Simulated assay, not measured.
Amino acid sequence: MPMIDVYAAPGRFADPSGLARTLAATLMEVEGVPPIALFRENTAAFVHEVVVSDVDGSDDHVRVQVLTNAGALDRDKQLAAVRRLADVVAEVAGDPSLTERTWVLLTETYDGGWGIAGHANTNAEIVALAREQLAP
Rank of each mutant, 00 (worst) to 15 (best):
V89W: 03
T102Y: 02
Q78D: 07
V89Q: 05
P35Y: 09
F46N: 11
A9Q: 13
L38S: 13
R84H: 03
V52L: 15
L79M: 05
A93T: 02
T26Y: 00
L27W: 01
G32V: 02
E31T: 03
P16R: 01
P35C: 01
D56C: 08
L98Y: 02
V66P: 01
F46C: 11
T43D: 13
G94S: 09
L98T: 01
I36P: 03
V66T: 05
E41C: 14
T68L: 00
S58L: 14
L85R: 00
G57E: 06
D74V: 08
A37N: 09
G94N: 03
T43S: 15
V51F: 15
L38G: 13
L27N: 02
S97L: 11
E29C: 07
A8H: 01
V6G: 09
V62W: 05
S97G: 04
V64L: 12
S53R: 12
V47Q: 00
A86R: 11
F39S: 12
G11Y: 12
T43M: 13
R83E: 11
H61R: 14
R83Y: 06
A80P: 02
R40G: 06
L19M: 05
V33L: 13
S97W: 00
E91K: 04
V50K: 09
R101W: 02
Q78A: 02
A9W: 07
V92W: 08
T102H: 08
V66Q: 11
G11N: 13
A8G: 08
L19R: 00
D56W: 03
E49A: 15
G32S: 12
V55W: 08
P35V: 04
A37T: 14
A81G: 04
D54V: 07
R40Q: 15
P96V: 01
P35I: 06
R63M: 14
R12F: 02
E29R: 15
D5L: 06
R63T: 14
D15H: 09
R75H: 06
G32R: 10
I36Q: 02
A45I: 03
D54P: 04
T68M: 02
G71A: 08
G94Q: 04
V50D: 06
H61S: 06
N69F: 14
D74M: 02
H61Q: 11
D59S: 15
R12Y: 09
A70E: 10
G11V: 12
D95V: 06
T43C: 15
I36G: 06
S97I: 04
H61G: 06
D76V: 02
R40K: 15
R101I: 10
V62Q: 04
L73T: 10
V6I: 12
G11Q: 11
N69Q: 03
A90Y: 09
V88L: 01
Q78L: 09
S17V: 12
H48E: 03
A80N: 05
V89F: 06
D54E: 07
V33R: 02
S97Y: 00
E31N: 08
F39A: 14
V51K: 14
V64Y: 04
